[in-house]
Simulated assay, not measured.
Amino acid sequence: MTGRPSPLVRALSTTVAAGALLATAACSDDGGTDGSRVPGVAASQVAGKKQPARQTPSPTATLSTDGARAALITEADIEDDWTQVKDTEAGNWHDSLLIGTVDVSGFLTAKAQAADCQRLLDSLFDDDLLGRPSGSSELRGFEQGDSRLLYQVASYDRTDPQDSLNWMAALPEKCDQFTATDDGEQRTVQVVDASLPAVGDAREAVRVTVRGTTGGTAATLTLDVAAVRVGDDAVTVTAGGLDGGEDDSVRQAAKLGTQRLKDVLAGKTPAANPSEIE
């Protein structure tokens, strides 16, 4: 995504989803779109989670555009009844509940912590959780009822994805609960730690919950967000919606997707059947 939308575009945008991926917050019982948000109380912690030193992985091939596309997961790689959507549709998923300015007054360290929380909302809306890729990047989207899953494979060969993983690791403490406002409407955002299988060179996961209103009705958007680094490349997964989070699907996508990326970087063809992966 490029830039943040103008107030007019925000007001007109009703195409929503969750990963950085994003489940629509514009769905209500009567099919309504944007609405007001409920107020919340901001609070957060100061300390961040200490991260281990970055380990240098074995040399791998440069991720090409074709390689990034081959490393994308398929419907067979995730559980339940996910259906793949057109790439152009997935690339335009935005969630209006993620638009807003973080209330700085609710933080103990004010601007520093608020900036981290603002980055979280912005990156989820813009689908660039680890920052803008410096190399090849491919997206694939899936939907299941009112939930959506966005999967990205990207190269960060001129930046360091570990820095972004360290930022993610501190979010549950720095941004445990805060308030964001857009056009006078408020919503409460909560961030909690989540877990992933031991895959890749490093990994982080969080669950983000946004409470607001849509179509005049109170609504809660829940997103499970994960990122796994393999050298200077990474996979990111964001899934969820108004029906709740999608933790199991995110864990499965991260596990099998990381193996697909490793296979591509090793010059192998990813397994067509997930059962072939140990």
Rank of each mutant, 00 (worst) to 15 (best):
T213R: 10
S195Y: 08
G91V: 07
D201V: 15
K86I: 08
T101E: 04
D80K: 09
L196D: 06
V237W: 02
T101V: 14
T236W: 07
D233Q: 11
L72C: 03
M1G: 11
T217W: 00
P5D: 05
G245N: 04
R229V: 03
S64Y: 07
A115W: 05
L129V: 07
G184Y: 00
K111C: 01
D116Q: 12
D77N: 10
G40T: 02
Q252A: 01
A18N: 13
S155N: 10
T83S: 00
E79Q: 15
S105F: 03
R187N: 11
L120F: 04
L12P: 11
W82L: 02
S36N: 08
D116L: 10
L265I: 13
A218H: 11
F107E: 06
P270Y: 02
D193E: 09
F107D: 04
Q186Y: 00
D34G: 11
Q51K: 14
A218S: 15
S28T: 15
A194M: 05
A180W: 06
A90Y: 04
G32H: 09
L256Y: 10
A114Y: 04
R207V: 03
A239V: 02
A112N: 06
R69G: 09
S58Y: 07
L261D: 10
V199Q: 12
A115I: 05
G240D: 01
T56L: 02
A42Y: 00
S58K: 09
L21V: 01
G100L: 09
K49Y: 11
Q45K: 13
T222N: 02
L121S: 03
T101S: 06
T159I: 11
A47I: 15
D95N: 01
S249C: 04
K50R: 08
R229T: 01
K174A: 00
D263I: 11
